[in-house]
Simulated assay, not measured.
Amino acid sequence: MKTYAIAAIPGDGIGPEVVDAGVEVLEAVAKRDGGFGLRVDRFDWGGEYYKKHGRMMPENGRDLIRKHDAILFGSAGHPDIPDHITLWGLRLAICQPFDQYANVRPTRVLPGITSPLRAVDGPELDWVIVRENSEGEYAGVGGRVHQGSPLEAATDVAMFTRAGVERIMRFAFGLARSRSRKFLTVVTKSNAQRHAMVMWDEIATQIAAEFPDVTWDKMLVDAMTMRMVMRPQTLDTIVATNLHADILSDLAAVLAGSLGIAPTANLNPERAFPSMFEPIHGSAFDIMGKGIANPIGTFWSSVMMLEHFGEQAAAARLMRAIEKVTGDRRLHTPDLGGTARTADVTAAVIDAIHGANV
């Protein structure tokens, strides 16, 4: 029997609460299916580790998780530590060296959840956003000079390489091909950014020739926000830069009902390194310890992890269990307008996993 090694990194805020729930659910579905096992190793890195050691993770942290099959990540962000330190010291310190260049964020309205869009409750919103996850605006190239003086200057340079854009375009077109509509929207800003974004557009056209069965169109990012709200049914698969997709995917999650339900996969498609799976909601320190964090985003991320492992039956079973639970409004957490607690939702999903009809 195959045993998958998972590195669990809860991080900060509600991260430990939802990661613990995610591990419970993964163990339940592994037990139900019986065809594979799990070994979960926990790494308590994050803000509290930083307070003790002056860094978010140990110097050899990546070596400790490099051989794991996947990473289950909670959140990075601490009110006592600047955000750029928490992000670059933990999440990006894993994503970039492990070349997790394809960030995949599915979005749809789950049963029992009503989109704030136009009281849409159903198939009108069913997207997957592909975010370039290794370069662009988050490449980390830049600096500050003359700090504190009237001449102070700062730069953050958006770096785009042909290799980086080609591979994310090829991944996005391939993903679009695998979906029923076979339709991709390429998000850009080439009217104002006349170098890198023009290259982005040109490469999209070149890669599109490799996928003649995929229909595609192009959208400026500002107009894209309007299209997501006013014409959601015209979208399916979306590809955008690191910054643009970061923003658009948060909008997409809220349009689907809540940030608390939104999943993410940070993929290294070539599998040279472990991929990382996480909810997108962040550390949410305002509700930490209250027991009301929505674990659905972590559960859905766990579905994506199982799909990555090739455990399609287990992934489908877990997704059906999630949909059964969200369909019961008594099990909605406060972010969805309900009063359920994290433990209630977790127990209900586990019960559904072991149910006869899931």
Rank of each mutant, 00 (worst) to 15 (best):
E307F: 05
M319E: 13
V325N: 01
F277H: 10
A316G: 10
T264H: 12
I238R: 04
M304G: 04
P263C: 03
K324R: 10
D236V: 07
N268S: 08
I207S: 03
G260Q: 02
M197G: 08
L336R: 09
L306S: 01
A252F: 03
V239G: 01
H195V: 15
A252P: 03
S249E: 02
V303R: 03
L318P: 01
H332T: 13
K218I: 12
G291K: 06
V214M: 08
E307C: 07
F309M: 11
R271D: 15
A256W: 00
K218A: 07
T326F: 01
P269F: 07
L267A: 05
Q193D: 14
W200I: 07
M288Q: 08
F299W: 03
P212Y: 09
L220V: 14
V254E: 08
Q312N: 14
E307R: 10
G327A: 03
I247Y: 05
L259Q: 03
R341S: 05
I322V: 03
A256G: 02
A252T: 04
S302M: 02
Q193N: 14
I261T: 02
M226G: 09
V214I: 02
Q193R: 10
R271P: 13
A256M: 00
A256S: 01
P269G: 06
D222A: 00
R317I: 11
G257L: 01
